[in-house]
């Protein structure tokens, strides 16, 4: 920083759209001299203040805590006020697109309709459920370990970056999305809360719940607060079993099936996993045609030829000694 401040020209292709007047979005090019000190929000401000006052975006705190200014730069979700231009130039060079979090939800330029995000958030009971003492004389005692069990989930600023980077959200409107799961985890992990089972039943529901996570890790990659949403999704999966709210369905059997397979073979028995998860008849109906083709191409191992790990007894001993879940 004692070094001098440098500048370089960067070209921005900026998504422009006003749902009141435009039938389709369009892109407008701006070339700006960018200094080594600037963040993306500085660029948005300069476009608005120096070039076109109608350019619109949400922003408030300027330092990464209010969560208002999430957008995408070259497809990478960023909190505009916390993303250094110099880092983006290093990643992408000096030509960048600036787009809203979700184009299909764009209302005006960078501003998107986040109703689906807030709806999902509200559905997981995002508050401590407890009898509240309105004039307490002492606090609840919470040990350091219990406090750490939140895994920083309480740091989520509801910016929506993970939600609108999640491919499942993009495809399935009912899917709660990573941020809502982080909220569910934050309260489920709180020793002061008493609605864990309620929330688990909610997030365990087919199509909208945690089982529709595709495990792409986009949420972890994009989170500007390093909250690691998928870690919380995994924890919720674990809680579904540990709190005995697991339903006997394809999703849970898919997870449990790995344990049974490993116990038997050390390795996964792919065919058996699918059969166990889906049931024999649904499996044939759904995968019969492809399955036959795979069989013909030598891609299906018959049960009697199922390979087994060496030292299988060792694996079996560990499965016996180290299992922590039941179904």
């Amino acid at each position: 920083m004692d070094n001098s401040i440098t500048t370089q020209a960067v070209t921005f292709d900026v998504f422009r759209f006003n749902s009141e007047t435009d039938y389709l979005p369009y892109y407008k090019k701006y070339t700006l001299e960018v200094t080594s000190e600037e963040v993306v929000l500085d660029i948005l401000n300069r476009i608005k203040w120096e070039h076109d006052g109608s350019f619109s975006y949400r922003r408030s705190c300027r330092h990464g805590i209010c969560g208002a200014c999430a957008i995408k730069v070259n497809g990478k979700g960023v909190l505009a006020c916390k993303e250094r231009m110099s880092d983006l130039i290093e990643l992408f060079g000096t030509s960048m697109s600036i787009e809203p979090l979700s184009e299909k939800r764009a209302i005006k330029d960078m501003i998107v309709d986040k109703a689906d995000f807030w709806d999902s958030h509200e559905k997981v009971k995002p508050y401590l459920v407890a009898q509240i003492d309105e004039s307490p004389e002492s606090e609840n005692l919470v040990s350091v370990e219990e406090h750490e069990a939140l895994l920083e989930a309480d740091l989520c600023i509801q910016c929506g970056l993970c939600h609108y980077s999640c491919p499942s959200v993009e495809i399935n409107d009912d899917y709660f999305g990573p941020a809502a799961f982080v909220a569910a985890y934050r309260f489920n992990a709180d020793v002061r809360d008493s609605a864990t089972v309620d929330r688990l039943e909610q997030i365990n529901a087919p199509a909208q719940g945690v089982w529709d996570c595709v495990k792409c890790f986009e949420c972890q990659e994009v989170c500007p607060k390093d909250i690691n949403p998928i870690e919380k999704i995994t924890k919720l999966h674990n809680m579904v079993f540990s709190e005995f709210v697991a339903l006997d369905n394809v999703a849970t059997r898919h997870a449990v099936g790995f344990a049974s397979s490993i116990r038997k073979h050390g390795m996964l028995d792919e065919g058996e996993l699918v059969r166990y998860s889906e049931g024999t008849i649904p499996m044939i109906l759904k995968h019969g045609v492809v399955g036959l083709k795979m069989l013909k191409k030598g891609k299906v191992v018959p049960p009697w030829k199922m390979p087994k790990s060496d030292k299988l007894d060792e694996i079996q001993a560990l499965v016996r000694s180290s299992s922590t879940a039941e179904f």
Binding site: A255, G257, A325
Partner: peptide, 9 residues
């Protein structure tokens, strides 16, 4: 997926 069921294992 095993991780979803039994992370420690």
């Amino acid at each position: 997926h095993l991780q979803d069921y039994d992370d420690f294992l």
